[in-house]
Amino acid sequence: MNDEKYRYKELADFLKTRRAKILPSQVGISTATPRRTPGLRREEVAQLAGIGITWYTWLEQGRPIRVSTQVIESLSKVLLLDKQERIHLYLLANQPLPVDIPGYQGTVSPILQHVLDSLIFCPSLITDQRWNVIAWNKAAYFMFGDFCEMNVRERNIVWAMFTDNKYKQLFVDWNLHAKGLLGRFRSTCGQYIEDSWLAQFIDDLKMQSGEFNLWWPLYEIESNSEKYKQLNHPIVGILDFEVSNFDVSDNSGLKLIVHTPLPETDTAAKIQSLFVEKM
């Protein structure tokens, strides 16, 4: 058997074994009578994955047919593949591996945290490539809330903007800022469009936010970073900031976001008063 035929046979066997491991109830199929064989039927997999039964049968027969990335993703979801199994399916289908958005694990270095803490009256955050806030200073705590009390999803900037009602009160002209944020988020998603985390995140946001559900299909892209931000803080009122974004130069994909009080405004003094207020 040549290498190509062997790969198709391996693909066929892999699909069959994984199909046999899935209980119908795991994918929402109710069965009134006992089955003679375990797992899902071929026609059930084909229907759930949105592909033709004949075409899927050919796959399990090891026929030399090309499998697209869309089909791989559909089969991965139907067959409940974990990360390593999904990668293996891509390799067997002779498709390039999908690029996932790396999530940042752990905490930032003490040096990086010291940089944040040194920006005393500048609310500053560090985010990962999924737009999760992973580090912050006290001024950011005063502006955006206690990140320690939030779960990972609540600390996501995009999620918070569209699901946390206090952000709609905090941002002056929330619609403008939310649309801009969405455009910048979308511009960073292109290379990760097949990432399973991203797909689930977008689906969940569509369910939670009417504005996100309305604006996401518009495909508006905004690559430029935000320059200015005006916030209406519940204690000290209107605050004006210049916003700067910096890449952390350790190949981690982290970003430092600094909100600098706009000169010739009373923003710095108001932030300073928050430190006194909270003492």
Rank of each mutant, 00 (worst) to 15 (best):
R86G: 10
D266Q: 07
T17A: 13
F185G: 05
C148G: 14
E10N: 02
K166Q: 12
G145A: 09
Y104I: 07
M1Y: 03
D266S: 02
G39S: 13
V258M: 00
E73L: 02
N175R: 00
A20F: 04
L116M: 07
W197P: 01
N132H: 15
V258E: 00
Y228C: 07
L80Q: 14
L170Y: 03
G62T: 01
I202H: 09
D128N: 11
K16F: 08
Q61A: 08
L125Y: 15
W216G: 02
D173G: 03
H233K: 01
G145F: 15
K255L: 05
E222C: 04
K5M: 05
L181D: 01
F171P: 02
N156L: 06
W216V: 10
P261R: 00
V243G: 11
D204T: 13
D240N: 05
L274N: 00
W174Q: 05
E4W: 04
E73N: 15
D204H: 08
G52S: 04
L75Y: 07
I53G: 06
G28H: 06
F14T: 08
D117P: 02
T54V: 12
T69N: 13
W174K: 02
I193S: 13
L256S: 04
F162E: 00
F241C: 04
L75K: 07
P34L: 09
D250F: 07
F121W: 06
I53D: 02
S249T: 01
L182W: 09
M1P: 07
L116G: 00
H259Q: 08
D203A: 13
E242G: 00
G50P: 04
T163C: 09
D195L: 13
V115W: 15
R18H: 14
S74A: 11
N175A: 12
A269M: 06
F144A: 11
D240I: 05
